Amino acid sequence: MEAYTRTAATDTDMRALGAAVARHVRGGDVILLSGPLGAGKTTFAQGFGQGLGVREPVVSPTFTIARELEGAFPDGTPAHLVHVDAYRLGDTAYMPGQNTADRLLDELESLGLDEELEDPGERTVILIEWGEQMAAALAPERLEIRIDRGEPGDLDTDQPTSDGPRTVTITPVGERWNGRESR
């Protein structure tokens, strides 16, 4: 799979893109979503959940850090989705000499998420919002999805907003993604 870029002009388009990506994942995959506040990460995650057959609402797990949801892969095999929001992780003081990745791993361990995130099971898919700061530490094989709001000047504000088109760049990292359809 090669990197590619898509435009999502509406929330509906963003959900459809999330659902399309979900149709290509397998158990053990890690997907990292990044982008500024209001870019559409949770909207993408909602579509992703729909694409995995999750029937529960997919909402931002900002305050719970992680939510576990059940669905199914396109072939009907049960799928376990772990939806993590890492925005609040790493916001406490670091110990002297401790690097960012180690601190994040410590926090994940305290939440009981470290083992599942480091080695997802054969039916588990991990979707991490704000995960770019822990990408290399957690998942050397991953799908990075960067969502950006339009070009400066497209909107009359620099503040976070759900309005306007989004540019979505999807980049596979590692051999795990070789041979998969890219679109």
Rank of each mutant, 00 (worst) to 15 (best):
Q133T: 09
D29V: 04
I128H: 03
Q159V: 09
I65L: 12
R103K: 11
T157I: 10
V30G: 01
H80F: 11
G153Y: 07
A136M: 10
G53Q: 05
Q98V: 01
T42V: 09
I145G: 12
T42A: 10
P74R: 00
L17H: 02
A136F: 08
L143K: 05
D106C: 03
P160Y: 08
R15Q: 15
M14Y: 06
G112M: 07
A8K: 01
I128G: 05
G27W: 14
F44E: 01
R23T: 15
D91K: 12
G164W: 10
R176D: 06
D91E: 10
A3Y: 01
Y4A: 15
G112F: 04
G47Y: 08
R55F: 06
A93N: 06
E56D: 15
I128M: 15
A22I: 11
S60E: 03
G131Q: 05
E115C: 01
A93S: 09
T62L: 04
L143D: 05
P152L: 08
I126K: 00
D85M: 03
L52Q: 03
D119F: 13
D11K: 13
P74I: 05
L81C: 07
L127D: 02
V21A: 07
D114M: 03
P96H: 08
A3F: 05
E56C: 06
L108I: 03
E118S: 14
P172W: 04
V84Y: 00
A137P: 02
T161C: 12
V54L: 13
S110Y: 08
T100S: 04
R183I: 09
R67K: 09
R26E: 12
L155S: 09
T157S: 15
D106Q: 08
A20H: 06
L17Y: 10
G121H: 14
G51E: 03
T100G: 00
G47A: 11
E141G: 07
L127F: 08
F48T: 07
D85C: 01
T171M: 09
G51I: 10
T171N: 07
L17S: 05
T92Q: 10
T167N: 13
